[in-house]
Write a protein that binds this DNA or RNA. Structure first.
Lengths: 110, 110
DNA sequence: TCGTTAGTTCAAAAATAACGAACTATTGAA
DNA sequence: TTCAATAGTTCGTTATTTTTGAACTAACGA
């Protein structure tokens, strides 16, 4: 039985959030979850199709333990939601600021 | 003769900046440089005194190559300045947002 | 010139991340 | 109920990144 570890709002740290977002793949995951604004399964939010399941699972665990997403089991899949309110309460504007730049599709040289 | 690699303003990438700032030590370095608002030698900006010189040097190289700091040789030491204008031009508000939260000394459980 | 200081480079050790294989849990169909 | 399929996790190994100490360079001062 899988137990998900979710930090409480106050246990969300800046370094944890930054570390979680410093990975291009995780940045994309969060970005797609933000634009979706609803639950997404791990596979739905996968940043690229050819990523190993275990790697993807690990990325979600890191995002989860950093407090960026909330995961709960729903049937055969896991529903992930971005913890936008908690992060906003903890670090107002941070997510919007970071992901806002991420929205520019490409910047100069690819 | 040491040649420093500094990306031009437009070559500064979000992921590079986030990756550079995702390390607690580098975050502290940048933080102290921001509060100082002037040149700092590597040793002056060292986040902890017991860090190996090579590690410190490596952190500065990462910050430099991410475009966060500018380094130039001045006598026996290296003067590092934060490239605040370039980062602001590239990602307005990012640095202030991120480092602003970093200013809270400690948050809940240490 | 010699010693000291500040920082870099290199190669090896330590820590992290990615992967494939095996596993668990749920669903749906026979 | 049993069997196959699906969605993720966990584990152990490999690959990549970080940290470190040792040796080096460059600038300064006595």
């Amino acid at each position: 039985m899988v137990q998900f570890v979710h930090p409480s709002r106050d246990d969300i740290t800046l370094e944890g959030v930054l570390a979680a977002l410093s990975d291009p793949m995780r940045l994309r995951i969060v970005k797609s979850m933000l634009s979706q604004q609803g639950c997404m399964s791990c596979t739905e939010a996968a940043p690229c199709p050819d990523m190993a399941k275990s790697t993807l699972s690990n990325h979600f665990r890191i995002l989860r333990e950093a407090g960026l997403i909330h995961t709960e089991k729903k049937g055969v899949e896991h529903r992930n939601v971005i913890r936008q309110d908690d992060i906003e309460a903890r670090f107002p504007g941070l997510l919007k600021t970071i992901l806002g730049f991420c929205d520019e599709p490409r910047q100069g040289k690819a």
